[in-house]
């Protein structure tokens, strides 16, 4: 992830980087440099920085991902209606074009920043960071980041969130977790939305959908919701959120943070932690702030 702290070094690869200070040479005399950095190192550094912001404000940051039309914005509207008096909510909306979703959220009395990505199929940590400067995080308990509707690309970009939520709506079909394993494997929680349609779309088998999720070795809770005010409702989701907000406050008190359970190669590379572990998790370690986007603040 970052070459400064050596967190990519594991017992399996450290021999590659613990040379005696010389370049290895290829047969034809080129200098060879073993790197072993994530291809998204720049994004990951920015994400780490965003997470630091979230933690310093004690808020829970949640990344909502799904295909377009799975009901992310409707779920947020219903969530704001249910929790608006109890928890302070803000929303970052990602879409290719329009302010429509942000306007729907603002109509519920909650701050929303729209990111129009143009043609980009996902949000990245830099886009989210720019949006954060337009929000007052001091007054927020939960920040929802509604990613671009897309079951592929958003799964690869860490935004600094604490938890990934993936929505699967009934009209999409129950085999989506088998078709899009990268996305569903990234989820800390999977929400089966539009469950009120199960009675009409009876070829959707919720147990089969959950089975495909378990085939990804995922232990993520699988909750059935209907945001339209009848049928299953959204109570289990609200309970999950309340518990996560409390858990995040406890973590912040202990000076800890959390990533989504599956953070790309991070999980595998950190498997060899221990004697070789050189990554100190305190924030503010050698962040590089010269990536061309202006910073008006420093680390506290």
């Amino acid at each position: 992830m970052c070459e400064t702290c050596g967190c990519n070094i594991t017992p399996g690869n450290e021999h590659l980087v613990q040379a005696d200070g010389k370049h290895a040479r290829t047969a034809d005399g080129r200098a060879a440099v073993e790197v072993l950095e994530s291809l998204l190192g720049e994004n990951d550094r920015q994400a780490q920085h965003n997470r630091y912001h979230f933690d310093s404000h004690g808020l829970l940051a949640v990344n909502l991902m799904s295909s377009p039309g799975a009901g992310k914005t409707s779920l947020l509207e219903a969530t704001i209606e249910a929790l608006g008096d109890e928890l302070r909510i803000a929303v970052v909306e990602g879409d290719l074009e329009t302010e429509n979703d942000a306007e729907r959220i603002r109509a519920k009395g909650v701050d929303a920043i729209q990111i129009a990505t143009g043609s980009a199929c996902h949000l990245d940590a830099h886009m989210v960071h720019d949006a954060l400067h337009r929000l007052d995080l001091a007054d927020v308990d939960i920040l929802f980041i509604e990613n671009v509707g897309n079951l592929v690309c958003p799964a690869s970009f860490d935004l600094g969130q604490h938890r990934n939520i993936t929505l699967l709506s009934v009209p999409e079909g129950d085999d989506k977790p088998a078709k899009y394993p990268v996305m569903f494997r990234a989820a800390d929680l999977v929400l089966l939305t539009k469950s009120d349609l199960l009675q009409y779309l009876d070829d959707f088998d919720p147990q089969r959908a959950e089975g495909y999720l378990r085939n990804l070795a995922s232990n993520a809770p699988f909750l059935r919701l209907s945001a339209r005010g009848h049928g299953d409702g959204i109570a289990p989701w609200l309970d999950w959120l309340r518990a996560e907000v409390l858990e995040q406050r406890r973590r912040v008190e202990r000076g800890e943070t959390v990533h989504p359970d599956i953070q790309k190669e991070g999980a595998a590379l950190h498997a060899g932690e221990g004697a070789h572990h050189r990554h100190h998790h305190a924030h503010g370690h050698d962040h590089e702030h010269g990536h061309g986007h202006g910073h008006g603040h420093g680390h506290g």
Binding site: N8, H23, T26, G29, R30, A31, A32, V33, E34, V35, L36, E37, S38, L39, L40, G41, S156, R214, N215, A217, I262, K264, E265, A267, A268, A271
Partner: peptide, 24 residues
């Protein structure tokens, strides 16, 4: 189902070969 991924989610820049004039 109780498995851990050992390999398969890598997205790594593993190695660079450079032409470096001053280390001929």
């Amino acid at each position: 189902h109780r498995t851990r991924l050992v390999s398969g989610d890598e997205m790594l820049l593993a190695r660079l070969e450079l032409h470096v004039p001053d280390v001929e």
